[in-house]
Design a protein around this nucleic acid. Structure first.
Lengths: 192, 192
DNA sequence: TGTACATCAGTGAACGCGCGTTCACTGATGTAC
DNA sequence: TGTACATCAGTGAACGCGCGTTCACTGATGTAC
């Protein structure tokens, strides 16, 4: 065992973190394995002793947000979530900070189109991230029989609002989209 | 003038239609100019007498949904929109038909990630499509001072709902997302 | 009405380049003595 | 404590391939006579 225990896992995680950021910024097709490895401080040849293919790396990178920074999955949320979590997450999700920090963004926004075109592996990862997010909203919904509905709709509103804001290329309109989405999301969940 | 008048414009439109469908299905990077031209019944060499670059084609293809099928921009809406347009559009947008027909899909969903990463040209096109959609919702909102807010939030909910549904790769969950988004959108606009 | 011709839409080979993936090799490391 | 060695993480050249773009050419067309 010529290398310290845990070495392989640490390097693997640094590749995933590098991939997560690059895929967020440029999307699946525009990121090369060279880019990912160089960004992680390695060279391309080593890649295939960590992952079977680029597709497998992509799926793991999408889900990596769930295991990498549990306390700050989204920029702006590194504070206490024990009280009022839904309201705080809606606000943070549609905040300036999350809007601007694309590399650290929630993959539900940045990878929406690529996930829709992806294989089972990516879509499973994508679904797990959504379920994680929607579950918070569901738990914060008072009316029992509307929990699933509200959780999914609020998630759709947050993801759609940020996606549209990032796409229109007009800061003023982007801010109005985010503000409108935030207000509507809090209204839907009764979290004003 | 060795070719019939209007010939160039007809061919140009057929290239745009071909591009629109391919970009919807595979995204910007995964579609080649060869693919677009072959799909339009031409060969690659001719491309540059119609468009300056792949980027320009992409921007025009995103906006092309506004000029190509004015009466049926989205699958499911080839019916009368003079009464109750907002409710009909929300229902059609989140319908099975729109969910399944990715090639004819609204580009706000399929191109969300690529538009966010695109240049000014694409983002302008993306913004124009959004404004077109949001305007319908705004006009259908009774309370004057909430028009902009409601229009943008409902658009975000429709786009986000369909994007998430397409990404999770689980038909059952996808249907629940669309249903929850539809109900919430109609509630937000008071169009039940 | 019929033909010769100028036009230009469309062709397809070619360019330099970067991709995903493979593989024989190197050299830093922990372990055995 | 010090050294020889087996291991295996990481290297970088090489593979076949398809990309966006350019360009000299072809041949179908409307027009002039």
């Amino acid at each position: 065992m010529p290398y310290p225990k845990g070495h392989k896992e640490r390097v693997r995680n640094s590749i995933l973190e590098s991939a997560r950021r690059l895929f967020n910024r440029r999307g699946y097709e525009a990121v090369s394995i060279d880019d990912v490895m160089e960004n992680a401080g390695l060279t391309r040849g080593g890649f295939y002793s960590y992952f079977k293919s680029k597709g497998e790396l992509y799926a793991e990178a999408v889900a990596y947000v769930l295991v990498s920074h549990p306390a700050r999955n989204w920029p702006g949320i590194d504070f206490d979530l024990t009280s009022d979590p839904a309201r705080k997450i809606v606000n943070a999700y549609l905040s300036d900070r999350h809007f601007d920090d694309v590399e650290a963004s929630c993959p539900l926004v940045t990878q929406a189109s690529d996930a829709a075109r992806g294989d089972r592996q990516v879509q499973d990862a994508y679904r797990r991230v959504l379920e994680h997010m929607a579950a918070v909203f569901m738990r914060s919904t008072r009316e029992r029989e509307k929990r699933t509905e509200t959780g999914l709709a609020v998630a759709a509103l947050c993801v759609g609002g940020l996606a549209l804001a990032r796409g229109v290329g007009d800061r003023n309109l982007a801010d109005r989209i985010r503000k409108a989405s935030r207000i509507a999301a809090l209204e839907l969940g009764n979290w004003q």
